[in-house]
Simulated assay, not measured.
Amino acid sequence: MNSPGLSAERTALAWRRTAVAVTVVGALFLNHAVNSGWRPAAIAPVGAAIASAVLAGVSYLRNRGLRTGRYSCSSRIVAVTAVAVVAIAVVAAAIGFTDPLP
């Protein structure tokens, strides 16, 4: 039988995985910006890296809140997270189409 604590634990782990994943994606965006040279086109990956860092922070704070027993969820947090993930994916796709690997 599931207790309310287990679902909160699973949700906290999902937020932690999100934080780790967007941290890695942000590092990859920065790596792309540095390796491709600091030209004006590097603004997009640097912006996506900053958005990834903010999203990682939000995900970490949500994970920490769930672990300390603050279960209230703002639908705004989930909506902002979804929009940020889609925006970062669009930037990644644009980079892939406009600056493919040699």
Rank of each mutant, 00 (worst) to 15 (best):
R64M: 04
N31Y: 12
G96F: 07
P100G: 06
L101F: 11
V86D: 13
A8F: 08
T18M: 12
P102V: 00
R39L: 12
A27E: 12
A21S: 14
N63Q: 13
V20T: 14
A56R: 05
S7M: 12
I43G: 05
V25P: 00
P102C: 01
T18R: 15
P100Y: 04
I50E: 10
V78Q: 05
L13I: 13
N2E: 12
S3H: 10
A53Q: 13
V91E: 01
F97V: 14
R10H: 05
M1G: 15
D99W: 09
R70M: 03
G69S: 02
W38T: 07
Y60M: 09
S59Q: 02
V20S: 08
R67T: 05
H32W: 15
R17W: 09
I77K: 00
R10L: 15
A49V: 04
A48I: 01
R16Q: 15
P100W: 03
T98R: 13
A21N: 06
V85F: 05
Y71I: 03
V83W: 08
V24K: 09
G47M: 01
S36G: 14
A41V: 05
H32V: 10
V54W: 12
G47T: 05
D99H: 13
S36D: 11
A51N: 01
V78A: 14
S72P: 00
I50V: 15
R67S: 00
W15E: 11
G37A: 01
P4T: 03
V85H: 03
V90I: 15
V54T: 13
L101E: 08
A84E: 07
M1C: 02
R39N: 11
A12Q: 01
V22S: 01
I88A: 07
F97E: 10
D99Y: 11
A42Q: 08
P40C: 01
P4E: 02
F29H: 14
V80D: 09
A14T: 10
T98H: 05
T11K: 10
R76K: 09
A42R: 00
A51Y: 00
A94M: 07
L30S: 02
A79F: 04
L6T: 13
S72E: 07
G5Y: 02
N35F: 11
Y60T: 15
M1E: 08
P45N: 05
W15P: 01
